[in-house]
Design a protein around this nucleic acid. Sequence first.
RNA 1: GUGGACGUAGCUCAAUGGCAGAGUACUGGUCUGUGGAACCAGGUGUUGCGGGUUCGAAUCCCGUCGUCCACCCCA
Length: 444
Amino acid sequence: MSPVEPRLPKGMRDVLPQQMVLRQHVLSILEEVFAQFGFEPLITPAVELEEILLGKGGSESEKLIFNVEHVGGKERLALRYDLTVPLSRVVGQYPDLPKPFRRYQIAPVWRAERPQKGRYREFYQCDADIVGSASMLADAEIIAMIYTILRRLGFEQFVTLINDRKLLAGLGQYSGVPADQVPVLHRTIDKLDKIGADGVREELGKAGLSLPSVDRLLQMMRPVDGAAADLQALRQELKDIPSAVEGIDELSELVGYLPALGVDPDCYRIDLAMVRGLDYYTGPIYETVVEKPRIGSITGGGRFDGLVGRFSNKNYPATGTTVGIERILDVMEELQMLPPGMGQTSVQVLVTLFGDTLQNESLKLLTELRLAGLRCELYYSPDPIGTQIRYALKKGIPFVVIAGPDELAQGKVALRDLRTREQVLVERKSAASALERSLNAACS
RNA sequence: GUGGACGUAGCUCAAUGGCAGAGUACUGGUCUGUGGAACCAGGUGUUGCGGGUUCGAAUCCCGUCGUCCACCCCA
């Protein structure tokens, strides 16, 4: 009988142990920073009732939903395609949760999209949201948290672009675009950095907008550095459009909090041409782009004051962000941003095995090292020492403890550092502490 | 959903209508004290799959599946 051909569904992948080393490192930093900012973890099921997932974000995102079936099933089930909708359900379902409710969630989501570089049909989302506060302090904290996360991960050249939906709506009004054409306007100016001012002018002209108003818009799309004077000028220009003024005031307040939160001014910028696709955003929106390799956005979020209202008589203002871990991992691999000392395995020590009579000595030593908290693997057959060392090398294990007849006869073991090729003979009893010292030294 | 490129050994790739190749990995054997080994022996394979053209197809044509890229959208 021929074996079943081992393969994966389209757009899905395995994460092998070697890749898990970096992934777990990144995830642990994320969880740490989320916790530092006062967010608490939440788990919701991968499967939701279909009615929970449908009816948001227009029919576009609904086409991407995976349905779940089982024989005799009476419920219409589907896999979640983001973490924001489940969050909204939770807030609606447990009205007693103290507000503001701040939760983070790191979990896979599924979208039946056509796969591409950095885009998969199953991927992890890392969301942190604050529900139940309309304060710009919440938005400022989200941006400060993004900044902290990326710095902790070792990113240097990144910018969080900030804009506001109310301001964008005002710009639509300002340009004289009919209400039903505003989405087209927004989608087009979002492409400003890609197709340039001429491209935008051309596309909007085709869409039937008058060229003078397009030019007035483009004039306004110049970078805004967030300085009070700059925002004031913009406010003056748009003073007759209440929505725009409201948006500018929000941005101005939000940006005003960032210095005290320790955010480097080079790492954020108000960008009137940044839109974001989802239509449920109602206030400030943010998106972080890495500038060195043009990989696109690695975080995205904003304020969504209307979403929870779908699941409750009461509506709650909310804001938050998604951290795109899959893209972050791609960028970190491309830029070789591995922390020092990080190898291809989490195993720290290989314990050698010699002849049958010494086997129990290896087992005892192994157990001692494990009790001391070291991650240890035992070599299973009494092969020549060279073979055992080569195995450790191939697997990327940094240290080998050689417990051979010569060493044990003196009550000692040899510790070999495979990266420096240095080998020391230590008392058997102090093997664990000596190894811990060496490992700490190697990682610093 | 639209458009493009590609599909040969587990992996990276050669072979331009005329006999299936290299490197690496893999399996077994030799080697009882130290660097990704050497030596020997060996699968390395329906050239993604199906059809067509041809005396003859990995090669040309059509279809299909898969991978990648661009668009749409997004993380």
